[in-house]
């Protein structure tokens, strides 16, 4: 078990996949990271040398926004939208889809389970 970027503990998967356990890193970013620090993406996480790990850690610490920082910046962005009272901010406040999707039906991801809207408002 390796620790990268704080508390993340990817297991005996390939590094390419292991890195995606970190919030803010998906497949695409994972590949770019491994490419820039020159680590074989098909290596298992447990087979990484401490030097490899150090390089990955350093790169992530320096130039990738992950975990708490990323979550903070996202919530700040949303808060900003809500404060300036723009359309997108209003949609966030109401818990409705922000990007112009239909709400006559569907939109359940944003709205939550059916019939719970009254509870949500309170």
């Amino acid at each position: 078990m390796a620790r990268i970027a704080g508390v993340e503990v990817p297991n005996n998967k390939r590094v390419e996949i292991g890195l995606t356990y970190i919030f803010g890193i998906g497949r695409s970013k994972s590949l770019t990271i491994l490419d820039t620090v020159k680590v074989d993406k098909d290596k298992k996480v447990k087979d990484l040398s401490s030097d490899d790990l150090a390089r990955i850690r350093k790169f992530i610490d320096d130039s990738v926004m992950v975990e708490g920082d990323l979550k903070k910046s996202i919530s700040q962005d949303i808060k900003r939208l809500m404060e300036i009272n723009c359309y997108r901010g209003r949609r966030h406040q109401r818990g409705l889809p922000v990007r112009g999707q239909r709400t006559k039906t569907n939109a359940r991801t944003r709205k939550g389970p059916r019939g719970s809207m009254i509870k949500k408002k309170k």
Binding site: I84, N85, C86, Y87, R88, R90
Partner: peptide, 8 residues
């Protein structure tokens, strides 16, 4: 942003 976004 656009002006319209502030005038619902």
């Amino acid at each position: 942003l656009k002006l319209g976004e502030f005038s619902i």
